[in-house]
Design a protein around this nucleic acid. Sequence first.
RNA 1: GCGAAAGUGGCGGAAUUGGUAGACGCGCUGGAUUUAGGAUCCAGUUCCGUGAGGAGUGGGGGUUCGAAUCCCCCCUUUCGCACCA
Length: 831
Amino acid sequence: MATAKNKQRYDFKQIESKWQQRWQETGLYETVDLPDKDNKFYMLVMFAYPSGDIHMGHFRNYIIGDAVARRQMMMGRDVLHPFGWDAFGLPAERAAIQRNIHPDKWTKSNIEVSRSTLQKVGISFDWSREVASCDPDYYKWTQWMFIQLFKKGLAVRKKSWVNWDPVDKTVLANEQVKDGYAERSGAKVEKKELVGWYFKITDYADQLIDDLDKLPGWPENVKAMQREWIGRSQGLEVDFVIEETGEKLPIFTTRPDTIYGVTYMAIAPESDLIDRLNLTGDEAGAVADYRQEALARSEIDRAAATGDKDGVFTGKYAINPFNSERVPLWVADYVLAGYGTGAVMAVPAHDTRDFAFARKYGLPIKVVIHPDQGTVLDASQMDDAYTDYGVMVNSEHFNGLAGLEAIGAVNSFAEEKGIGRVVTNYRLKDWSISRQRYWGCPIPIIHCEKCGPVAVPDTDLPVLLPKVENYMPKGRSPLADVPEYMDVTCPECGNPAQRDPDTMDTFVCSSWYFLRYIDPHNDHEPFDKKKAAAWMPIDLYVGGITHATGHLIYFRFFTKFLRDIGWLDIDEPATRLFNHGMVMDAQGEVMSKSKGNVVSPIAVMGERGIDIARLAMYFTAPSDKEVAWSDEGIVGVEKFVMNRLYPMVESYRESFPDLKQHFTLAELSGADRDIYVKLNQTIKKVSESCERLQFNTAIAALMELTRDYEPDKISNDQLNDAVILKTIQLVAPLAPHLAEELWERAGLDGSVFRSGWPEYDPEAIVGDLIEIAVQVNGKLRDSINVPADADQAQVEETALASERIQAHTEAKQIIKKIYVPGRLLNIVVKG
RNA sequence: GCGAAAGUGGCGGAAUUGGUAGACGCGCUGGAUUUAGGAUCCAGUUCCGUGAGGAGUGGGGGUUCGAAUCCCCCCUUUCGCACCA
């Protein structure tokens, strides 16, 4: 009944609550306000949406951060490890509506439940710094941020084509739309022209791309995604001229070398340029019909029709400024209003889309690029465009130029003649932040007929979100129907004026929360500059990959902006980013509420204890890979805890060794020497594994150590006890309650988390005898044991004495021997 | 279509810089102990072969004394972007 006895003794419930209580009483995780800049560690996990209780995905995220925070604490650093709630926003509001509970009440009760879960899980958050973005003390400063942007001309109000979510009845940012569907509601996104607020993130596009090179601690895939999302492209803007009106029609092209191949031009259906063409007759009607039809189509329908392009001729012509050629002007679906100038020059011979369009409507195809001097393309024989670089032909004085040289020549010519200029375009658009919803941070702007949009004075902040009963989405902001909120006087002229009725995108709230943690109770500033200078940047930011092109761009943007207005002295908010893998169910399916396969960490914890649940999660896979959570995975670590780790402390001999002191290897022998070497190898392995966030291999190393630990064979009491205590220290970041309990049971005072992190003895990571692999011609033939300090000659002698080696070298000529010290000997033979 | 990452036993996964492939765990097999075992302990467990030995990290080539690791081609999977001119 050994196990039953152990299980009884490992009373995890009692241990967990005891230590959680003690951590709280002693304020173990409460950190200093102003740390030593060279000895601090800012460990950040992403803000949580309080849309329900904590699930396995959160659990995994937070225990990764927790292990890092705890180890850093043991290493003697000032650690900031805060937590808070991304409490405004659509999901919270939608969930509240479904349950018919006011979002305020629902959000707050969710926060209570989730916080209590997290506290039961024993994450080392400093709860004294907790923030919630729906709290007026917080969103006062979100509004302050808006006003700073507004004052710098980086928050602007404009009419623009927006993504409209017909289910949630609000505008969405591009980052919230995936494949034409709303990320949150799943509705097909519509196009709508609306007035709203935009943050000019495009002003920072270059920095946001270029500074990615300063982030070696970020995963390459995230950086690649951000580069693509920002989508910088260099090209030439050429002024074509509308024949009839003389109006300039600028277009953007990345292929100026194909300018002589333009055979028509195409304008986006949304473009207001069309209104200025003075269309008449049949064409006017046809174009109007076409525009209406095109606008009715959703984004995905347009995007899906990749092969099938359509359009309509306007009856008008434009002039190519390079050769004065007259080309027809079309309106075409495949031209995007939001990119470049909303119009393109079409070169069917050298652009796949233009080629398809030209073939469909019988437009001319003119070859102006040849693959090389010897190859000639014939337009009538082509079945697709030739889009590679090549030699310019049929292009007047540019003939013969190729590739980048050709582009350079055309660019210079255009600039000299004043018919074009080199420009950079971005795929990234300005960030649309107005939301026609109730549950969000009010926009601190007052619209005055005389003064225009006026910022609410700092002294009047926060603009409180009024408590209303009717917060249902209806396509216009619910706040617009609350006169006591809307009707105010203009702060500048005193005339009657109206508040902006919209609320902000929640991504605004989460773009600066990491700074509020630094100084969460400051009531006269968003945060203290000195404190921020000391704590920033974030040393490790752990979260899911889902935010790669949303939040993780926005918070970089905010950091750069705050730097520019003198609040921060850093270029980038986080030096290291880590994306943990997702948690799937045992069948490998994503856990989701709709599938009903969500596993709560609480359930597992109740049966086996938090620390075993934590170890199981760490051990299943390296932190960046996805895991299929199943109870079977727990068996191995449970045995490790029950049979090896927990009983280990019973062998403690109360010698209370000095843990800072290494033993002298030469004075140890036999089992003492072996376990001392193993201990130091383990310290090295666990430290390195933790550094790389590969806790699975850290646990594997600890399993080996406890397996090899045989107290009966150890004669040195101090050594025996040092092995036990250091093992407890090594496991502490991963299994904190267990470690504290063992530490106390060994008779030590204070928290294990204040006891230091073990350092390995460099003298003791190699044993007495080492195994050398012996190869003949690169094939393993034997392995020999030699003293650790043996030189090459000694190794060779031993190797050649081996019968198995002799069998392969006999009657053969030894050409050379390659010796890798401490690892292998390769004997190369011939004949 | 473009871009990125990855492919290792029955399974999860090890293997910093090229240097004994399969650590650690699950599962499985055999044994010990036990009234019993879904407990514990011991041994075994990549494949073929009784053995010596041979093969082996998605497939095919290459570089090297030596390749899971580096290079080229191909296949598969995952992720991201998808009319961006």
